[in-house]
Design a protein around this nucleic acid. Structure first.
Length: 437
RNA sequence: GCAGGGAUUGGGGAGUGGUUAAACCCAGCAGACUGUAAAUCUGCCGCUUGACGGCUUCGCAGGUUCGAAUCCUGCUCCCUGCACCA
């Protein structure tokens, strides 16, 4: 991690990186002149964070880097309701067990980013289930609900288009904005949290909290607001698509779901036009280093130095040096054209669970199994026909060798080190078949 | 509740009795070209077959017909008016 000494304060830094989309009046001044405590919420809607969460996470990291105190809030309480933002349909409620499991998984993923031992500004992790699950309805309506008009709540972009839809929006989801505002106030009261950050889609919710704190706690003695909010931009690529869009959903931070290798590849394949903006947003590299990369991109784009730096930094941050080494090793093997450089163990380690399947020994013994059948069960194709077509087009490989006949029989003698089969579809899609023990 | 409109292959959207596994666009997949890029080009894109072909599809269930995504009946869901309720 590079120490950044180029900026006077985090606001300037964020601004330079294009990471500041919106801020309440006085927010940047406060960031520059005070030590603040800022929180960001993470929804436990899935068992892993994904790269769409990277920008908010890096936001906390940068705040801490400049001496502010970061708080990561996991939404064990709000997750029981669900944020209606950006959805066209009512959510299905999640089981509490599932929410709690997700909360636990997400906490673990957040930990490596933040310093919980810092002397003056240690990070902290909180779960809004701690207060929301024991909040009583009547006091909540009297104390919190009274400060919101339905009129303004209905004006929120996050719910507006739901009014015109048939399925409408339930009262439950509609109340979400109150809960998030209440969270901010609770954090303000319990931990002195006076900042909330979030994606631009959270801006309305952030302002809701700022307003609630102002209504209940008034301005400070000098007439300045007690609470502020800042928003990060929605990250889109040069083609205007939302960042992270890829087949099978956004890459996750969980190595079981998205191997370090896949994550590395995702960032390595970023378009030239996106590389520098992403480096600014997602890495701790400083102005000078990024300037150098920008130059490299314009002069020798084919070297993809910026993409390389981006992929390396991100993978190292998320999966550590070990994860990065592994990703690099596999990348060299797979794209160096020779997978024989990898041991069976390494191949197994490197691919995420979704691309590993098992076969029984008796399926391979005797005549063996038809390649097309094997490929389908390994997830390398949708159907036998799909596999055959791909073979006709020259896009299927077994252990690095191009397959020409869908009916080619695969037997025990094809196993690498007696226990693995490597199927490749196209240039970069690998599936692994293990022999079940 | 009444009247009108609609439900087609991942999405959009043609198709109103046979030549339709179903135009076209997008997405997706493979190949060529490249920088593991973009753009472009080629092929594919229901299941199956080496191929001819076979099979299953057009909200659901029946029916008419030699033959239906296309016609009829019932059902389900959605949209739009009106009414009812306020």
């Amino acid at each position: 991690m590079t120490t950044n000494t180029e900026f006077q304060n985090v606001a300037e830094d964020l601004e330079w990186r294009g990471a500041l989309y919106n801020a309440t009046p006085g927010a940047t001044h406060a960031l520059a002149t005070e030590k603040i405590t800022c929180y960001i919420g993470f929804d436990p809607t899935a068992s892993s964070l994904h790269i769409g969460n990277l920008l908010p996470i890096m936001g906390l990291v940068r705040l801490q880097q400049y001496g502010h105190t970061p708080i990561a809030l996991v939404g064990g309480g709000t997750g029981m309701i669900g944020d209606p933002g950006g959805r066209s349909e009512e959510r299905t409620l999640m089981a509490i067990d599932e929410i709690d499991a997700n909360v636990a998984a997400i906490r673990l993923q957040l930990e490596p980013f933040l310093d919980f031992e810092a002397v003056s500004n240690p990070a902290r992790m909180v779960n809004n289930a701690d207060w929301l699950r024991q909040t009583s309805l009547l006091p909540f309506l009297r104390d919190v609900g009274k400060h919101f008009t339905v009129n303004s709540m209905m004006g929120r972009d996050s719910v507006k288009d739901r009014f015109t839809r048939d399925n409408g929006i339930s009262f439950t989801e509609f109340s979400y904005q109150l809960l998030q505002a209440y969270d901010f106030m609770m954090l303000y009261e319990k931990y002195g949290v006076n900042f909330q950050a979030g994606g631009s889609d959270q801006w309305g919710n952030i302002l809701g909290g700022v307003d609630l704190i102002r209504r209940i706690h008034r301005a400070d003695s000098e007439g300045r607001p007690r609470a502020h909010g800042i928003a990060y931009p929605l990250v889109v690529n040069a083609s205007g698509e939302k960042f992270g869009k890829s087949i099978g959903g956004a890459p996750t931070l969980d190595p079981k779901q998205t191997s370090p290798y896949k994550l590395y590849q995702f960032f390595l394949n970023v378009a030239d036009a996106d590389a520098i903006p992403y480096v600014k947003l997602f890495t701790m590299l400083n102005q000078v280093q990024i300037g150098g990369l920008a130059e490299a991109v314009s002069e020798e784009p084919q070297k993809r130095e910026a993409q390389r730096a981006l992929a390396e930094e991100v993978v190292r941050t998320i999966h550590g040096q070990g994860g990065l080494d592994q990703a690099l090793k596999v990348t060299r093997a797979f794209f160096g054209g020779d997978i024989s450089g990898l041991s069976a163990d390494e191949m197994e380690d490197v691919l995420d669970d979704s691309s590993v399947t098992e076969v029984n020994r008796d399926q391979l013994s005797g005549e063996g199994i038809r390649f097309s059948e094997l490929a389908v069960s390994a997830g390398a194709g949708k159907s036998g026909g799909d596999v055959k077509r791909t073979i006709q087009q020259g896009g299927m490989y077994l252990n690095g060798e191009q397959i020409e006949d869908a009916g080619r029989l695969v037997g025990v003698e094809d196993l690498v080190e007696g226990r693995l089969l490597v199927i490749r579809r196209g240039r970069k899609n690998y599936s692994l078949v293990k022999l079940a023990e």
